[in-house]
Design a protein around this nucleic acid. Structure first.
Lengths: 226, 226
DNA sequence: ACCCAGTATTAAAAAATTGTAAACTCAGGT
DNA sequence: ACCTGAGTTTACAATTTTTTAATACTGGGT
């Protein structure tokens, strides 16, 4: 739905850059892995299969251009987005970066905001099939673009997490979602919250909707029924 | 919204480049015309009236910069988007390209992906101001050509950013705009401003309009309601 | 009837997000 | 050089959301 779950690999030999980028991307909800040189990048790429890779051009072992070229030869990484970090003073490399199959490049010194914005743009573009559509379930209508829920003509305001949780359950009516699944989908893989948190949100949804559309499956999870 | 139907003219003297760009842009759904030199570009531009023109800087007969300058003197081409292709080694021309009225430039050698992405970005960005129509939402009227907002007979003067922000939100009533979307649309992809800036502008709009037409969706963004 | 694991309910704490006023920057105009 | 206002940032207050924690409930198994 959101940035949630999207995996990003950052490869740069300067720890400071790694840190600041990681911090900012994690804050946006991405799952971030880092690599300290070209070979490390290849290894991490193969093990984590990121959605997007940020490659510094100048790195020990293998340059960003080399890494990019190697990745592009493998079908698995054919659709992986690659964002190059280039220093303004090595023009030759900049050119190679583009030729080698990068999807975009950003000049150093990097601005976290610019990176975040470009990353978002790239992922959004590649993501156009995951269209957010309005769910209609009986007298219930859930519109993710308007962030609005309507029950029998009556408009209900849900908070973000409540909305996401309802949207998830309603996206597959009847199907039981395990508590773990819910945590991963709505909260993200790394966020650590207790199980009771889900209960509380479920309760609020039931309360606000005034409908009994969410059923508890004891020992398993919750499901949306209609 | 869709790229479909948008016309693009590509002018370059290297047939290879013409071909690869044409192939990639056509695949994206654009209608593409090509020109082989500066004068040819002017002729084709006049006959096809493209939405966007890709100009190589170095061309026989007339350079990209010249073509650009000539086009810009004509009102018909005032809003036509121009994307320059520059060789990295002639910085002087790069600068001239921007001065002469190009909307963006891309360094050679070209990467189809980058071109497609930039073209998309340009068209998307221009889309908002090209659809310059008066919005009427209840007792609120927003005229982008006059740059004027009227609430219940009363005329309100908004600053540029305030106006653009209101116009964006009002262009899709009900739809929630994420803070990132707002930043991209109103401020542009590369501009770096803090989140509070949006709030402050929203506040000014609310204040000046004296209407509660903008709703905060906490954790998500803002939306226009009526 | 009692226990137990799991869930519901509540209230209150903690965290996140937004609202606001005021100050600062910068460009343009006088 | 000075003024002015748009635009931005800052720092803090106000608010809402999210989480925790403590307690009560529930239904099946013994």
């Amino acid at each position: 739905m959101d940035a949630k779950g999207k995996k990003i690999l950052i490869a740069d030999d300067e720890p400071d850059i790694l840190e600041v980028l990681q911090y900012n991307l994690v804050r946006e909800g991405y799952e971030v892995t880092t690599a300290k040189d070209g070979e490390d990048a290849l290894i991490k790429a193969k093990s984590t299969h990121p959605d997007l890779i940020i490659l510094d051009i100048m790195m020990p072992k293998k340059s960003g251009v080399e890494v990019c070229e190697i990745l592009r030869t493998q079908p698995v990484f054919h659709d992986t987005l690659i964002l190059m970090l280039t220093a303004l003073n090595d023009e030759g490399f900049q050119i190679k970066g583009l030729e080698s199959g990068a999807d975009d490049y950003v000049n150093k010194p990097v601005s976290p905001k610019v990176i975040v914005s470009r990353v978002g743009a790239l992922l959004r573009r590649s993501n156009k099939e995951s269209a957010e559509k309005v769910l209609k379930r009986g007298n219930l209508s859930i519109d993710p673009t308007k962030f609005e829920v309507v029950v029998d003509e009556r408009q209900v305001t849900l908070a973000k997490k409540e909305f996401e949780l309802l949207y998830l359950l309603a996206s597959r009516p009847g199907r039981v979602f395990l508590r773990n699944e819910i945590l991963n989908q709505v909260w993200g893989n790394d966020v650590i919250v207790g199980d009771r948190t889900i209960d509380v949100h479920i309760r609020k949804i039931r309360q606000k909707l005034g409908l009994d559309c969410i059923t508890t499956v004891k020992g398993v999870g919750y499901k949306f029924v209609n």
